[in-house]
Simulated assay, not measured.
Amino acid sequence: MALKSTIYKADLQIADMDRHYYADHALTIALHPSETDERMMVRLAAFALFASERLEFCKGLSDVDEPDLWETDLTGAIVQWIDVGQPDDRRILKAAGRAEQVRVISYGGRASEIWWKPVESRVARVRNLTVLNLREGCAAALAGLAQRTMRLQCTIQDGQMWLGDAASEPVLVEWERWREPVARSS
C-alpha cells in the first residue's frame, strides 16, 4: 500500500516591497512521503519569493513532468517553472524550453556546491535561468516553522526576506545568486 501525502495548510501574508506585491494566500501544501519538512518549507519560501496570483504548487516529487511550483498564463503557457533542490541538467534544459522563466532554489550547503559545479557548464546556454542557493542553515531554520496549520507573515525588502509566525522569531531567508537570466541582445 502506497503512503499518502500529509496535508499542510498555510495562511501566508506577503509584503514584497521590492516588487510592490502585497497579498494574502490560503495555501494547501502536500508533503510527499519522501519529503522532509525542510524541503516543504523551502517550497513555501520559494512561493513567497516569486508569488503571483497564478503561482501554484504542483505535483513536484510525484510527477517528473511538473516542477515544485509553476505559474501559467490564461492560455496555459508556463510563465514560471520553479524547482527546489538539485535538478539535473536535462530537467533544467527541458524546463527552459517549456517556460518563460526557470528558477531553481538549491539548499544543502556543500552538497549544493558539489551539484552546481558540473551542472553550471551544461546549462550555460540557457538564457531564462535563475539559480539561487539558500545559505547554510536557512532550510533547517525554516523547518522549525512547519506545523500542520500555519499563519505566516513574509516581508521582502532590499533583497532580504523574513518569514515567521506570531509564536517565534522570524527566519531571515538569505541566498546567493549563482545564476541570473541572460539579457537578450538586440
Rank of each mutant, 00 (worst) to 15 (best):
G76C: 11
E35Y: 01
A96P: 04
Y21E: 12
D65P: 01
E120I: 05
E38D: 08
R151C: 14
G85S: 09
E100P: 00
A45C: 05
P118L: 14
R90E: 12
T130R: 08
A10F: 07
R98K: 15
Y8C: 05
A166K: 15
R39S: 05
I114F: 05
W115E: 06
D18N: 10
I78P: 04
D24L: 09
T149D: 12
D65A: 09
M41T: 08
G164H: 05
S5I: 02
D68H: 07
L74S: 09
A124R: 15
E176S: 12
A139R: 00
R127E: 15
H25I: 03
V182T: 14
A140H: 02
A2D: 13
V123Y: 06
E113R: 11
D63L: 09
Q147F: 00
R91Q: 11
G164F: 05
M17K: 10
R110S: 10
G108C: 05
M40G: 04
L172S: 07
G109F: 01
E56Y: 02
R39E: 06
W175H: 15
Y21K: 10
E176G: 04
L61F: 07
N128W: 05
L152P: 02
F47Q: 08
T72V: 13
R127W: 02
Q153D: 13
V123Q: 10
G85R: 05
P170C: 14
A23T: 02
L31G: 03
A95H: 05
A48R: 07
A183N: 08
K117S: 09
C154I: 05
E35Q: 09
E56V: 10
Q86K: 11
V123L: 10
P118K: 12
E66C: 10
A167V: 05
T6K: 12
V123S: 09
W70I: 15
M40E: 01
V104R: 07
W178L: 15
E176Y: 02
G85A: 07
S106Y: 00
M1K: 12
R19C: 03
C138M: 07
R90C: 01
A146L: 04
M1L: 12
H20N: 10
R179K: 13
T28Q: 15
Y8R: 01
V42L: 03
L142K: 06
C154E: 03
V171F: 00
D63G: 11
A111M: 01
E35I: 02
L61N: 04
A77L: 11
R127Q: 14
I114N: 03
T28W: 06
A51V: 06
K9Q: 14
Q157S: 14
A15W: 04
T130V: 08
V42W: 00
S52W: 06
A2K: 13
V173W: 00
D88G: 08
G144W: 01
R127T: 12
L69C: 08
A124D: 15
T149N: 11
D158G: 06
R110H: 10
V123W: 07
I114P: 00
S168W: 03
E38Q: 14
A166D: 15
I7Y: 01
D73A: 11
